[in-house]
Design a binder for these strands. Structure first.
Lengths: 325, 325
DNA sequence: ATGAAAGCGCTAACAG
DNA sequence: CTGTTAGCGCTTTCAT
């Protein structure tokens, strides 16, 4: 492994000069030249570990998400990455698998590796951020809020639930809701939108049609099966996220009830869908934009911005199916 | 930031002893106790940067993939992660976006950060691995081969193309193939399988039905549109990967040709599909298994195994649609 | 089993 | 503009 000392010797300068060349501070152009040449000949790669140890920070940010296989989060990751790499930061993606324990392992790694900051989609409302925050490193929460006084970017979840439900209520009588775990904020808020839409239409929310499962395909499947087995099954359903939507539609299709023969609205959109866009109503959640926004906020903090913590709520957009009937 | 010196002072031992406690070498149990207590009280987090600088290696492996939004690669990532974290390694996921340049940036980071090894799904056959390999760090190639003498795990691509095509030829006359870019190995090999299946059936491969586009949804869409515009359009199509499959089926559906009214076989499977499993033939590519295998190979190398480079070819499995007609 | 001490490779004062 | 020098926090001989 060649070091700045090797390069310095070969270029006939001091190690400090070599360092300066690689960090863009003022060095005479001839020495810059000599150093670059020597570095190339030795195929010198600066040792980031040493640099980080010395500087006590590295141009890396951690992005911790609960499910790397969910396109909602990978879309968000793209947004983060685009902004970060534009600014010269690398992103390391960590998959917490919705486990608080794995999450804290990664947070601890972020500290131990002196990363500049972290963007966290919390696995739970019990996510432990104390340690990271104590180090003074900026943290931005995405998708869900944390209970800590930090920046955040969230979707207008209650709104999303309300919009979706409202639209279905225009042509359906019994509109069900399938969410993720009840204790997860996004899930509860979207359900609250479902309730609100009913009340706004002068209806009692049909609580027998309210289901909390998991934010995964099998969660949607399970709940949809249950709903269809009801004495008086729903004639429409709001899916609390993309994967639940997939599961619910799978089950409907298997029962010969392909949308729009049953009304379906999906909060977040159907990933890689092959259904006609007119068959299913979608409340688009701007996942990429969420990532972009979070990354920008984080970069501002890294650069020293210390205004009070902000929470940005992203608006979403209804893409109605032609008619669900 | 508290250091081992702070902990040492508080526990009344030397820094070396603190280090030993955190690295599991022989220390009397009473001192272990004292150190643990002091560390907890100071909420000490060992500084990995310093450790890595000193040890010249870190328990992190890099996983570089061309498209983080493709479920095929995230499924693979899960496999890698499960094996790695089981063995005490963290995985940092890097998205090369199919660009050789971004890819080398990440490879250089892997070197500069002293990561233990890298698993790479090469963006191209021009991927530059010389620098990493020169450092002696193990590299395992996945999905595509590299031209370097290193371990690799690939799918039986030619076979996959052959199986899919063969199956469609049982009930269809004109079977098209839509692949990714022709210069990408996986793409070319699967196309070769398509040719082989035709020849095996005593047919001339209908080259007017062979299309190379991109490995993305829009690639599938574009090519499918072209195929449908043909004077004599195909009555079946093999999609060269999952996203092409999605795009092709979208277009078919828009034209009122929902499978199985046109025969469709997708190499790799349809992510989050809501279609009936009997409508589309799938050649399952064991992506997770690929990740698991690659991670295991990498760990062996990290542990010092120096047998000659191996390439493992993973077999895949046909899941036939009931009948494409 | 434990401590003292010498670096790992780099950056950042500080001088000049 | 450039060189000298003192660490960043940890691990690892080498003694004891």
């Amino acid at each position: 492994m060649t070091t700045i000392y090797d390069v310095a010797r070969r270029a006939g300068v001091s190690p400090a000069t070599v360092s300066r060349v690689f960090n863009g501070t003022s060095v005479s152009s001839e020495k810059v030249e000599a150093v670059r040449k020597a570095a190339a000949e030795l195929s010198f790669v600066p040792n980031r570990t040493a640099r980080t140890l010395r500087r006590r920070t590295s141009e890396v940010i951690a992005l911790v998400i609960p499910d790397i296989e969910n396109p909602y989060f990978t879309e968000m990751a793209r947004g983060v990455e685009d902004v970060a790499s534009e600014a010269g930061y690398s992103v390391v993606l960590c998959n917490s698998d919705s486990q608080v324990e794995k999450e804290s392992t990664y947070l601890r790694i972020a500290i131990a590796e002196h990363m500049s900051g972290v963007i966290l989609a919390p696995a739970s409302d019990h996510s432990g951020l104390d340690e990271v925050i104590a180090t003074g490193r900026p943290v931005v929460a995405v998708d869900r809020s944390t209970g800590y006084d930090i920046d955040g970017v969230v979707m207008a979840n209650r709104d999303a639930g309300r919009l979706a439900t409202q639209h279905l209520l225009e042509s359906n009588r019994r509109v069900a809701y399938i969410g993720g775990p009840e204790h997860i904020e996004t899930s509860a808020e979207r359900a609250e939108g479902w309730r609100a839409a009913h009340r706004a239409a002068g209806l009692q929310p049909p609580l027998d049609l309210l289901r909390f499962s998991s934010f995964r395909v099998d969660g949607g499947r399970l709940a949809m099966e249950e709903l269809l087995a009801l004495p008086e099954p729903p004639d429409a359903v709001v899916a609390g996220n993309n994967l639940i939507g997939v599961g619910a539609i799978q089950v409907l299709t298997e029962h010969g009830l392909t949308p729009p023969s049953v009304g379906v609205a999906v909060i977040g959109g159907l990933p890689f869908t092959t259904l006609s866009p007119s068959a299913v109503t979608v409340v688009r959640l701007p996942a990429r934009h969420m990532g972009v926004t979070a990354a920008k906020m984080l970069l501002e903090r890294i650069r020293g911005d210390d205004q009070p913590a902000r929470t940005i709520v992203l608006r979403n957009e209804l893409q109605a199916a032609s008619a669900s009937r």
